[in-house]
């Protein structure tokens, strides 16, 4: 363990040197290669010990000490934490490329395009052409993104699908390590930032994760956990329903019964929040200014289209609510009555 700690410490130091020291001026290709090997070693350590609290704690402590000690040498130095070990090669690259002392020869090596075209980054420690390969993949992704968007291929886009799949893989791993649901929730909180202030991107990733299709028992269990997590975070759910494209909601409603019910409840909640504005002559809501009565009707229609069997039940409920509002057939008096007539137009 002692040697592991020493190695972690050295690697964190190496990262600081790569990013901040003028020593880099004298680095050669072999030096960079070795630095990447150390970074790769730390990534390995991370994947091995991140779910082991004891070892993780010890390593974390060591990293903190190293951070302190590095601050005196490099005052502007970025603090590293345990989870950063999982992407140390990336941080190393970032550090090197922001260091003004990085020699041109190293830059040329990293961006070399004369290297054999195909390589697998994960398995290859060779730094020759590494960045060229990354730029190539990144640009190709963007070229294809335009195509998938214009052809409307895929429900959520390849990037969200990848993140969704990875989220499910990691969640399954967490759940297989311990049956503790709290740990799974904690993991989701850490990845999805507690769902607070969920960005449109995050909502799409969650949707993509809920739509993965491995059809294994582990996947079903993880879907259930993710869904529970989402339903507990009401604002995230509402945000997701507002942001997601209709096709995506349809898919989710078809796939998950719990989601269907929750979606239906959100719609009813939105409806109940609506007030009739005499000046504008239509139903509006203060809680969700972007939502219009037409949007709401469309949402209900999406739900019915995705799951026709739910229509009768919902309409029955809306009728009861309409009756409780006095059962008038005049527009602008009961949101339920107006909804019903809009839905049956």
């Amino acid at each position: 363990m002692e040697s592991v700690l020493k190695n972690v410490s050295s690697s964190v130091e190496l990262l600081a040197v790569a990013a901040h020291s003028s020593v880099v001026e004298h680095w050669q290709e072999q030096t960079v290669s070795r630095a990447f090997q150390w970074a790769s070693y730390c990534e390995h350590l991370h994947s091995r010990f991140h779910s082991n609290p004891t070892v993780r704690g010890t390593i974390e402590k060591q990293i903190q000490q190293t951070n302190q000690h590095l601050l005196s040498a490099f005052p502007g130095c970025t603090q590293v934490c345990f989870s950063d070990l999982s992407r140390l090669r990336h941080l190393l690259l970032q550090g090197l490329l922001t260091n003004p002392k990085l020699p041109l020869s190293i830059m040329k090596t990293l961006f070399d395009s004369k290297h054999p075209a195909e390589r697998t980054y994960s398995e290859n420690q060779d730094v020759h052409g590494l960045c060229n390969y990354i730029v190539r993949c990144k640009s190709a992704c963007k070229v294809l993104r335009l195509l998938t968007d214009s052809l409307a291929v895929g429900a959520v886009g390849a990037d969200a699908e990848v993140l969704g799949e990875t989220l499910m893989e990691r969640l399954e791993a967490v759940m297989s390590q311990s049956g503790d649901l709290c740990k799974a929730e904690h993991f989701l909180d850490s990845v999805l930032q507690g769902g607070e202030g969920a960005t449109p991107h995050l909502c799409v990733v969650i949707s993509a994760a809920l739509l993965t299709r491995k059809k294994s028992a582990a996947e079903t269990a993880s879907h259930a956990v993710l869904l529970d997590w989402l339903l507990k975070r009401h604002s995230t759910l509402k945000h997701m329903v507002t942001e997601a494209p209709t096709a995506l909601i349809t898919d989710l409603v078809k796939r998950h019964l719990k989601f269907r019910d929750a979606y239906c409840n959100v719609l009813k909640e939105w409806a109940s929040d609506m007030e009739y504005s005499l000046s504008e002559g239509e139903w509006t809501t203060q809680t969700n200014p972007t939502l219009t009565f037409q949007n709401l009707t469309q949402h209900f229609l999406t739900l019915f289209e995705a799951c026709p069997s739910v229509r009768a039940e919902v309409e029955k409920e809306l009728n009861i609510l309409k009756k409780s509002d006095g059962d008038f057939e005049v527009g602008g008096l009961s949101v339920w009555g107006d909804l019903l007539s809009a839905l049956n137009q």
Partner: peptide, 21 residues
């Protein structure tokens, strides 16, 4: 931000997205 939480390195992300697209 999501990638960081999932311990998914950027290069691996691109490679996967490319393959998926």
């Amino acid at each position: 931000a999501v990638m960081k939480g999932l311990f998914l390195p950027l290069h691996e992300y691109y490679l996967k997205v490319l393959g998926k697209s």
